[in-house]
C-alpha cells in the first residue's frame, strides 16, 4: 500500500521533503538526541552494565527510535512519513510509560534514562519533541 496512489496532482508525485523548512529544526533536535541517547547508553553499558541494566537498555531503545526518525525525516516521502509518525507515537508512549514508571517505582532504576521523570534532565524536550514531530508530520501530509 503506497501513499502515492491517492495523490491528486502532479505536484504530489515526487517524494515531498520532510527535512526542510520547519522540518530542518526537527532533524537537528532528533540528531542531537540520537547522539545523546546512543553515547549515553553505550558508555554506561561498557563501563558498568550491571548497575542498572534496565535503564541502559531503555536508553539504547530510545537511541534507536531517535535514529530511525532522524533517518526518516531526511529520507522524505510518504512511506518515511508514516514510519516516522508511528515512531513518534511510540516515542511519546515510551516517554510517558518510562516517566510514570520512574516516579512510581524508583527502585527499578538505580540510574537515570533519557526518559526518566518525563525527560526533566533534558529540559522536557523528550516530551515536547514527539508532539511537535507528529504535528509537523501531519501537516506535511496535507501540504
Amino acid at each position: 500500500m503506497t501513499g502515492t496512489e491517492r495523490t491528486t496532482g502532479p505536484a504530489r508525485k515526487q517524494p515531498f521533503e520532510l527535512g526542510s523548512g520547519p522540518g530542518r529544526v526537527l532533524v537537528w533536535f532528533y540528531g542531537v538526541f540520537t547522539v545523546a541517547a546512543a553515547s549515553r547508553s553505550l558508555v554506561q553499558m561498557i563501563l558498568d552494565f550491571d548497575r542498572a541494566p534496565l535503564a541502559y537498555l531503555l536508553s539504547a531503545v530510545a537511541a534507536v527510535v531517535y535514529g530511525f526518525i532522524t533517518y526518516s525525516l531526511v529520507r522524505g516521502g510518504e512511506k518515511a512519513r508514516r514510519a516516522a509518525l508511528v515512531c513518534c507515537a511510540a516515542e511519546l508512549a515510551g516517554v510517558l510509560v518510562v516517566g510514570t514508571w520512574t516516579l512510581v517505582e524508583p527502585s527499578a532504576f538505580p540510574d537515570a534514562t533519557v526518559w526518566s521523570d518525563f525527560g526533566t534532565g533534558y529540559l522536557l524536550i523528550p516530551v515536547i519533541l514527539p508532539v511537535t514531530g507528529m504535528i509537523w508530520l501531519r501537516r506535511a501530509a496535507s501540504a
Binding site: 526542510s20 532533524v27 540528531g31
Partner: peptide
C-alpha cells in the same frame, strides 16, 4: 553541525536551527 544544516536550508528555519544549536 547546526551551521552545515543551515547551509542547505536557506530560509528562516535555517536560522532557527543554528539558534537551537
Amino acid at each position: 553541525a547546526a551551521g552545515f544544516l543551515s547551509l542547505t536550508e536557506r530560509t528562516r528555519w535555517g536560522s532557527v536551527t543554528v539558534a537551537a544549536g
